[in-house]
Write a protein that binds this DNA or RNA. Structure first.
Lengths: 112, 112
DNA sequence: TTTAAATATTGCAATATTTGTATATTTACT
DNA sequence: AGTAAATATACAAATATTGCAATATTTAAA
């Protein structure tokens, strides 16, 4: 049925579903970065960074530009940042909900 | 450092990273649905639907309401649909890119 | 108190992802 | 040609996720 398209979409989300890759994307908000840059920023070893970048590259989420021996990575579609913003908004809502729940539980204990 | 938060975010995206779960969420755009409803809509067996719903429930993406023996599921935060919309926009861009590439390749072959 | 309907959970083999380590590849420089 | 820097890839062990089939649980009604 809608199998292929939804599989495609699922693969896209799968590419985002990793802490290191999310951090990489956050760092790319401020423009392209080299692998060494990211390696420093994330305090990760070179090959791990390269591997995560490969995942993002395969899903076409990032673009790569080579200058000499240096590879510069950037986010292909600025809409991605919008997506991350909406995701952040959802997390905030989530945290507010959790906080309210805690507050409620605390009050229940106090009035007892 | 930012480990826990990004792990949390990654888990959220992981919950979206499955074709069946994406289809379920699309169906929930038009309001709450019972497990049987979804089972029919998706042409999946009951236990698979329940399992995927469990994943969405664990990540607090959907809410569940029970009425008799029937369980009604709905999306907790409408922002989620906004997120899916942005994702859709990204896919469209992506497809346009692919299409243009194909077009270009076709033209190259024709003029040769 | 059986029975049926609706939903949830469990167990497990098959796959897929992650993580760390080692090894390639590419490019520029000497 | 030989070497160093930057990046990429290969591989294997540890984990996690799927996809089914079987089994439980819960609720309402006979």
């Amino acid at each position: 049925m809608h199998q292929p398209l939804h599989r495609f979409k699922a693969d896209f989300f799968k590419a985002l579903a990793h802490p290191a890759r999310l951090v990489i994307l956050e760092h790319l908000r401020s423009g392209e970065k080299s692998v060494t840059d990211l390696q420093t920023l994330l305090a990760m070893d070179q090959s791990s960074v390269s591997q995560q970048l490969a995942v993002l590259r395969n899903r076409q989420i990032v673009d790569m530009r080579k200058e000499g021996t240096t590879a510069y990575y950037s986010v292909r579609d600025p809409l991605l940042f919008e997506l991350l913003d909406v995701a952040r908004a959802i997390f905030n809502q989530h945290l507010i909900g959790t906080q309210e729940l805690l507050q409620q539980l605390t009050e229940e204990n106090e009035t007892r």
